[in-house]
Design a protein around this nucleic acid. Structure first.
Length: 280
DNA sequence: TCCCCATATTGAGAGTTGGA
DNA sequence: TCCAACTCTCAATATGGGGA
């Protein structure tokens, strides 16, 4: 372990985790200020430099040390490639208790990209000859399916405003995945429509927009129309007690028969009223 | 990679029940 | 009669499998 000047440290490019200024962060800063000591960071030497380092683990401690005014921080130096560092970073952070969908999305992407770079080998034989896809490997390690990993990676195609809504659970994960197929401009129009209507799309609405987008038929007007539509579970329903109605129908009628008959009577009544209106 | 479909899970709202 | 607790139903959502 060595002490490294804080000026020589750089955050990992594409670092997917948010370092929030919350109570936890403030406690960390206070702890660093009062004790002046901290758990060592894990860093790697930056290519083409002599004494500059990239942080693999300890971004929050680094920020706290900066705010506390420390000149140096303790660190373990690991001479690893950027891809290896990316995998280490993601692995150490993915198992945090609270991780936002956006963080998971960028973490999976970072790791998948790193694994893809590493996978470009020609010296493998036997079962190594057909290495598993990066998403399959991540899925195995995370105890999920490769499709779920791909879905998370799809979220990285969302514009920040919509991705934030997924993080805030205002938009469901699967809805976010479908919306990721919209172009950046369509997503911006959608975000405006969401703000204006104060409504978020359901999965079926998101699928509808995706299909229209792929057909080149999705404009801001269509987006507003779809967003403002009433969702099936928002429509009013009426219900009857079977006892109230069954006495007016033959005993052999099932509830479905009664429903069909009532619908038919309503249709006949509607037509009769239309005719009467026409005769006047 | 994308699409479609099936199945499981979740959550909201409506209805029912039982005790005060 | 009121109200809380429980149950049921259904739409929305998450996930996985298979095929193109």
């Amino acid at each position: 372990m060595t002490n490294i000047s804080i000026n020589k440290l750089h955050e990992f490019r594409d670092h997917p985790y948010q370092v929030l200024d919350n109570d936890e962060m403030n406690n960390l800063i206070t702890s660093v200020q009062q004790q002046g000591i901290m758990t060592p960071l894990i860093v790697r030497p930056l290519e083409n430099t002599t004494d500059e380092y990239e942080i693999i683990s300890g971004h929050r401690r680094f920020r706290a040390a900066q705010k506390a005014g420390l000149a140096e921080v303790p660190a373990f130096i690991r001479p690893v490639s950027r891809d290896e560092a990316a995998i280490m970073l993601v692995d150490s952070n993915l198992h945090r208790e609270h991780i936002l969908p956006s963080e998971k999305a960028y973490a999976y992407k970072l790791k998948a990209d790193a694994l893809n770079h590493q996978g470009k080998r020609t010296d493998l034989t036997s079962e190594q000859f057909a290495p598993k896809l990066s998403t399959e490997l991540i899925a195995e390690q995370e105890g999920t399916s490769k499709d779920t990993v791909k879905r998370y990676i799809r979220l990285t195609k969302l514009i920040p405003d919509i991705l934030k809504m997924v993080d805030e659970q205002r938009i469901a994960f699967s809805v976010g995945v479908e919306l990721s197929y919209l172009t950046e401009y369509e997503q911006k129009d959608l975000f405006e429509a969401i703000e204006l209507e104060d409504k978020t799309p359901s999965l079926s609405q998101a699928i509808q927009m995706k299909k229209l987008s792929q057909a080149g038929k999705l404009d801001s007007e269509t987006i507003s129309r779809i967003i403002s539509e009433e969702k099936p579970n928002q429509r009013e329903k009426i219900s009857f007690q079977l006892d109230e109605l069954s006495k007016y129908f033959p005993k052999k009628y099932t509830p479905q028969d009664i429903y069909k008959r009532l619908l038919k009577l309503a249709q006949d009544d509607y037509r009769r009223r239309q005719r009467n209106r026409g005769e006047r």
